[in-house]
């Protein structure tokens, strides 16, 4: 029992540090890495809550696939350091204030609620709780429609990403010459060099 508490506090500290790192680090690349640490800590917390399948899905889908996507995009657009804080300083003070107020309100709701079960370790569960078998049987028996809707949503998102990422041939060829110069000027202040454009001026294709 003591071991569980120690693991909980270690994972909680890891999750909090990861979350703070995402918000406070200036370089987006380090923010992404910090979020990976946060997700690993959350997977440990899911294991403590005896939901093994969800912990595995968190590791494979989130910390694996989604974060790789983020790393690719950060590498593509160039993660330059940005100044922290908004342009208007008053907004910078307003944001944490709102967050602190929301946090206090949520604490009030959780601790002040009359639910006795909140102060227990949870209901007694069978050994198979949270296993892939139980999740699969729930998905295919009780939640078949949401399951199919989720798969359809994934399909729509994939098609939408293709539409967004498609290179519009006509526009690109027209603007190709002017565009490289402008990007070079716009990027001059950053640490990254101007990205290579597929249609460079003066290059015969």
């Amino acid at each position: 029992m003591v071991l569980r508490d120690i693991v909980f506090f270690l994972a909680a500290i890891g999750a909090l540090a990861g979350a703070l790192g995402v918000v406070m680090l200036r370089n987006p690349f380090y923010s992404v890495l910090s979020l990976v640490g946060h997700l690993l800590s959350l997977a440990i917390l899911f294991l403590l809550l005896s939901s093994e399948f969800l912990a595995a899905a968190q590791l494979v889908v989130y910390a694996g696939a989604v974060m790789v996507l983020y790393v690719f995009v950060v590498a593509y657009i160039g993660g330059a350091d940005e100044p922290l804080g908004p342009a208007v300083p008053a907004v910078g003070a307003f944001g944490p204030l709102v967050a602190a107020a929301l946090c206090g309100e949520l604490f009030f709701a959780f601790i002040g609620s009359g639910l006795e079960a909140l102060d227990s370790r949870g209901a007694h569960v069978s050994p198979g709780f949270g296993s892939p078998g139980q999740i699969g049987s729930l998905l295919l028996r009780n939640f078949l429609i949401p399951f199919e809707a989720a798969s359809f949503l994934l399909l729509v998102a994939a098609v939408g990403a293709l539409v967004l990422a498609r290179r519009r041939r006509g526009i690109d060829d027209e603007e190709g010459g002017a565009r490289v110069d402008t990007i070079g000027h716009a990027r001059a202040h950053g640490s990254e060099p101007a990205p290579a454009e597929p249609v460079a001026p003066g290059v015969e294709r």
Binding site: F8, A12, A15, L16, A19, L20, V22, V23, L45, L49, L84, G85, P86, V91, G92, F94, G95, P96, V98, A99, A100, L102, C103, L106, F107, F110, I111, A117, L118, D119, S120, R121, G122
Partner: peptide, 22 residues
């Protein structure tokens, strides 16, 4: 206890919200 997990999730949610705002 479950309430510890809930309080942790509240703190994480607020950190994320502050990040979205600032």
């Amino acid at each position: 206890n479950v309430v510890w997990f809930l309080c942790l999730s509240a703190v994480l949610f607020c950190i994320g919200g502050a990040g979205v705002l600032i």
